[in-house]
Amino acid sequence: MADIVSERYALSLYEVAAEDGKAKAFLDELTAVCEVFKREPDFLKMLTTPSIGLEDKHKVLRTVLEGKIEPFLLNFLMLITEKGRVGLIHDMREAYKEHYYFENGIVEVRAITAKPLSAALTDKLKSKMSAVTGKQVVLETSVDENLLGGIVVKLGNEQFDTSLRTRLHEIAARLTNTIA
């Protein structure tokens, strides 16, 4: 969960983007910028280093990002750099995404399986979760071979675990309680 500062910056950015009809584009570009910062942590470190002048930071931002992202988003990055908040960019992106998803009836679902899901099963799970939630589903899948079989679905703060590993643990617990 983003802190109050990240939340306020994200909400301001979202409101401007939504007003211009560019909320999705801003989310995509903000995500891409965050990916760059993850791949190149020294880039973000440079932007947060107090001994480097603001003019130099702005020059680097323009050189690297100008023409590749929306001008308003570039200005936003320069503003949060100036205010010493650029280190919160990942939290801001998360808060922005939450606003976007809420306003557009989207829910994020995470499915963990023992083996990769086929495209047909992925589509079926996505449709099922969409029917259950009444919202458009963004499905993220991952593999955990320790599950042995079955699926673990995470939806917000809820988790539905039908994995074979969990079932075996439940059976073992019942047997232990029966014997003990």
Rank of each mutant, 00 (worst) to 15 (best):
E15V: 12
S118L: 09
A18S: 14
T176S: 14
P41Q: 07
L88Y: 04
L11H: 09
V152R: 04
E35C: 01
F26N: 00
V107K: 09
T162R: 08
E7N: 10
G87T: 06
E140K: 15
V107S: 08
D42M: 11
G150E: 00
E66F: 05
S130Q: 13
E140S: 13
S127M: 13
A10L: 11
M1C: 02
F102G: 05
N146P: 01
L125N: 02
L61G: 02
I69D: 02
P41G: 03
K59G: 08
A173D: 11
H99S: 09
T162D: 15
E66I: 10
V5D: 01
K115W: 03
E19W: 05
L54A: 00
E158M: 10
H99G: 00
N157T: 13
E15I: 08
M46A: 14
T178K: 13
P41K: 10
D42K: 14
L73Y: 06
T176L: 12
N157C: 00
L155W: 08
P116I: 14
T166D: 02
K83M: 09
S142L: 07
E108Q: 10
Y101Q: 13
A32S: 11
V138M: 08
S130A: 15
Y100C: 01
L65V: 02
T122Q: 09
F102P: 00
T178R: 13
M92Y: 03
E158R: 15
R39A: 14
V137A: 06
I80F: 00
S163V: 07
L88N: 03
D56S: 15
K45E: 08
G67C: 08
E98T: 14
D20C: 04
A111D: 02
A23E: 13
F26H: 09
E29V: 12
K45A: 10
M92S: 00
L155I: 11
T113K: 00
L155D: 05
V60C: 07
T176M: 07
L73P: 00
Y101R: 14
I52K: 01
A2I: 03
F26K: 05
V86G: 06
I151E: 01
T48F: 04
S130P: 02
R8V: 05
V5K: 02
V86S: 05
A180W: 14
A95L: 05
G53T: 09
E55S: 12
F43E: 04
R39T: 08
F37Q: 02
T178P: 03
T122A: 13
K59V: 00
L27R: 08
E98L: 11
S142G: 11
V60K: 03
D144C: 10
K135H: 07
E70K: 13
M92R: 03
L121I: 01
G21Q: 05
R174D: 10
K59F: 07
F160K: 06
E170Y: 04
A114R: 02
F102I: 01
P116C: 13
P116Y: 10
